[in-house]
Amino acid sequence: MPISESSDLVMIDRRVTLKWLMGAMAAGQLAACGDGAKGVTWAEMEAIKAKGYGTDPDFNNTVAPWPLTMTQAELVAASSLADIILPAEGDYPAPSKLGVPAFINEWVSAPYPDQHKDRVLIINGLAWLDQESRARSGAIFASADTAAQKALLDEIAYKDRVKPGLEKPAEFFSRFRSITLGAYYTTPEGWTEIGYVGNQPGTGDYPGPTPEAAAHIKAVIEGMGLKYTAP
């Protein structure tokens, strides 16, 4: 799965990311040419020809240069789906309030191979969601009632409980969820919720764990019968 250049694992070695990307790509290819005898299958789409940001982008103007391609209907479905995946809770807004649907539009419209694979899944997946919803309840996904929406998602959202034949929609859901979570938790609101308190320059020595964090890990380590060494 593509992960951000600043994500945790990548800090040691961003080649790990590429390894994962290659794995994800290989998995995608397998799924696309699997037998899928009676299951839902989707046609390949034409690759986007727009220009990328190039090898030497201007960091003072970081707008993605490619045209956005999602239709209004697709954005409505994407917004609704993202908000069910991560419903607003307490101080934490729904994804649609943090620009996640617009980010998904930027993502699937990008002229790069990984994003193209996601585009095939997501554009087809959103259409499938509306079509399936209409067939079941007469309304597009965004307009269906909550119970109907959940009944539909329950068939594709849990990796061990995918309804036979819906492997492709489940693959769509998994990627959509992953992109939604990534987009959400890279915002200041997402950072606050998850507890990321970095990207703050400091002076002097690196302070290390807080007393609370150190006491916690000491208890964990000693609880496992292992020896704790203070940092």
Binding site: S4, S6, D8, T17, Y158, Y185, T186, W191, V197
Partner: peptide, 21 residues
């Protein structure tokens, strides 16, 4: 070389997770 940490969650934050809500 080892990597963990509370870093910027990044686009991989959802990897390995299941379900919704």
């Amino acid at each position: 070389e080892i990597g963990g940490s509370f870093g910027d969650p990044g686009m991989g934050v959802g990897s390995g997770l299941d379900g919704y809500g």
